[in-house]
Structures are given as structure tokens and as C-alpha cells.
């Protein structure tokens, strides 16, 4: 291949890019729309394994499933989770009085989800967490609570790997 005629090589290269151009043009003429994702209106189809931001699971009675055991706080490599536990008269006896996640430090690694013994903190499909200030990237418990039925994709994915 080293002895190929340079002119032929350039022409074959031109043919490659022309072929791409023509193919895209014909697809465009046939109505193909997926050249770009118009982001806020259209979304990419993400796989079920997607790790978005960690959120707290809200049970049907409106309370969090978390019992403030603090394992996610231990497991977090960047120490972005802060928990202040408190006692409650409910069946679970403990709940997090304060549960903050500093999303500016969170790196979406998913170790909190893996450490959690209650499936109370899971990685949601939410990835748009930009805010105008640094304080805005500190998420409190009320912001983090997500009803359990909205997290079905993730919990199904996790349960598939329960037995491994």
C-alpha cells in the first residue's frame, strides 16, 4: 500500500467523504431528523443502567425510606453526603433529620447506592443539576426525595442484579 499512487489515494479519500456527504444528503431528503438532538425538547434515550444524581426514595406515605444508618456517608469517596440522624416514633425508629448532598462534589460513582442496606438512596435518571450558585448545588432532603414509583427503572435494574 505504500506504493499507491498519491493522486489515487487523494481521489479515494475524496470519494470517501463524498460518499458520506451523499448518504447524509439522501437521508436528509428522506426525512431523517436525528442529525442533532435538540436538547431541552428532545432527550437522548439513556440505557437502564444510567447513573444520574443520587436521590432519596420516598415511600407511599410520603416519608423517606432512609433510616440514617450512615453507610452512604462512609462509602462516599468525596464525603459529599451529610446526615444528622434523629429518632422517630415510627416503625423504623430512626430517620435523617438532615440529609444533604453537595452535588458540586458528587461524582456520580454510585457507591452510596451500593452501600445502602435499605435501597433508600438510588441513582436516579436526573442528570440536569446545574444551578446559578454554589449554594444551589447543595441539595437538601426535601429536594432529594423522589416518589418510589418514579424510580422504577432504576430499582428494576438493581433488583436484576440482586443475586448476582
Amino acid at each position: 500500500m505504500s506504493n499507491a499512487n498519491p493522486l489515487l489515494a487523494i481521489l479515494s479519500g475524496l470519494w470517501v467523504s463524498t460518499r458520506h456527504f451523499l448518504r447524509n444528503l439522501s437521508r436528509f431528503a428522506r426525512g431523517r431528523q436525528d442529525f442533532a438532538i435538540h436538547f431541552p425538547e428532545q432527550r437522548l434515550v439513556q440505557p437502564p443502567a444510567l447513573r444520574g444524581m443520587p436521590v432519596l426514595v420516598q415511600m407511599d406515605n410520603g416519608k423517606e425510606r432512609c433510616v440514617a444508618c450512615g453507610l452512604c456517608e462512609w462509602a462516599c469517596p468525596t464525603t459529599c453526603i451529610t446526615i444528622y440522624p434523629a429518632e422517630t416514633t415510627d416503625e423504623v425508629e430512626r430517620y435523617p433529620q438532615i440529609f444533604d448532598i453537595d452535588m458540586a462534589r458528587c461524582m456520580f460513582c454510585g457507591l452510596c447506592e451500593e452501600a445502602c442496606p435499605e435501597e433508600a438512596i438510588v441513582m436516579s435518571r436526573q442528570i440536569e443539576i446545574a444551578s446559578y450558585s454554589r449554594r444551589g448545588s447543595l441539595w437538601h432532603k426535601q429536594d432529594l426525595l423522589v416518589p418510589v414509583n418514579q424510580l422504577k427503572t432504576r430499582t428494576d435494574y438493581l433488583r436484576r442484579n440482586y443475586d448476582r
Binding site: P47, A49, L50, R51, F108, L111, N161, R164
Partner: peptide, 24 residues
């Protein structure tokens, strides 16, 4: 890679003694 482990670049796929999840 995204379908395999849930992230494109920050994969965190392999665990000590295993992998984070089976393939889909």
C-alpha cells in the same frame, strides 16, 4: 460502555472481586 455500566467516561465498572453489574 454506557449500557454496560451506566456512565460513559466515569465508569466505575469493576469492583474488587467482581464487576458492578452483569451485562444487560
Amino acid at each position: 460502555v454506557d449500557a454496560l455500566c451506566g456512565a460513559r467516561v466515569t465508569t466505575n465498572f469493576v469492583r474488587i472481586g467482581g464487576v458492578s453489574a452483569d451485562m444487560p
